[in-house]
């Protein structure tokens, strides 16, 4: 009881603190100007986070394009084609990916991925696409393990029924299994999305961090999280408040994503 409440109160305190520091700034500076101006020049008193919002969304979308198909396909293969004994070895191994610190992912991105992109496609290498690919790999464990759980939760009788009607394994998978576990798969993707949009360290290292609305996947970008982490150590006064306000916006985005995920999960429970 006490522990449960202490966890909730910590969450509440954090939320209150961020909102308390950030909201006054938003009201003073103007919500419109803050959200939709693309001038971020703290030394001149200009705080527009539009480029960061756009970049955050692009990087996350890119990560989804990399991570979601790979993750879901991997989950289907592991749960439908591979014998259970082997899956019991592979699944924990994949989940171990989640235990690798994000600095390590960032480091691999800087040392391996960025030069590959720079030499083959041009641009500075540290870019939107590098960030997307690294994040796409980072969300794989989330997507795969939750997808596997929801696919395995599909009752055996569904599959047997489909097979008995003469459907091939593949037909069974894409017409029955995926349909039945759809909400779980979607929830896994949304949770992965939450992880991707909140990731900071790896993105700072591989995305280049220029305040810029990207024109191509090879442009360098700065996400909302990177903006806060990069400038916090030096910021004072209004600049500091602007960073807290950035945090408020990020907080709202993540709350929206998480409630979408919980709605999707609840749907699945109701269906059963």
């Amino acid at each position: 009881m006490i522990t449960a409440f202490s966890a909730i109160s910590v969450l509440l305190l954090i939320a209150l603190f961020i909102i308390n520091e950030g909201l006054p700034f938003i009201f003073r500076y103007g919500l419109n100007e803050f959200l939709f101006s693309s001038d971020w020049q703290p030394h001149l008193g200009k705080f527009g986070i539009y480029p960061m919002i756009v970049s955050s969304l692009w990087v996350t979308l890119g990560a989804m394009l990399v991570g979601a198909p790979l993750g879901v396909a991997c989950a289907l293969f592991l749960s439908e084609y591979v014998p259970k004994s082997i899956m019991n070895i592979i699944k924990p191994t994949i989940e171990l990916l989640a235990a690798i610190p994000s600095v390590v992912y960032g480091f691999i991105g800087v040392m391996v991925l960025a030069p590959i992109i720079r030499n083959n496609f041009g641009g500075p290498g540290l870019s939107l696409s590098a960030g997307s690919i690294i994040l796409g790999i980072m969300i794989l464990p989330t997507v795969i393990s939750i997808s596997i759980d929801s696919i395995l939760a599909v009752p055996r009788s569904y599959r047997e029924g489909s097979l008995a009607l003469g459907a091939t394994t593949w037909q069974t998978i894409h017409m029955v299994t995926i349909k039945a576990s759809k909400s779980g798969i979607i929830a896994s993707i949304i949770l992965g999305m939450g992880r991707a949009i909140g990731e900071t360290m790896a993105v700072i290292m591989v995305a280049g961090n220029s305040v810029n609305i990207p024109n191509s996947p090879l442009d360098s970008v700065r996400t909302l999280t990177a903006n806060i982490a990069l400038e916090m150590s030096y910021a004072t006064g209004l600049h500091r408040q602007a960073l807290f306000a950035t945090g408020v916006i990020l907080f709202i985005v993540i709350i929206i994503l998480n409630s979408m995920a919980s709605v999707a999960i609840r749907k699945r429970v109701v269906k059963k």
Binding site: V110, R118, N209, V211, N212
Partner: peptide
Amino acid sequence: KKDALIQDSNGTIRETVANDVNS
């Protein structure tokens, strides 16, 4: 200029320049 890369320490600037021939 807007599309300049931003790094948050002397050390990471050094690494970026050491890795990129055109920087």
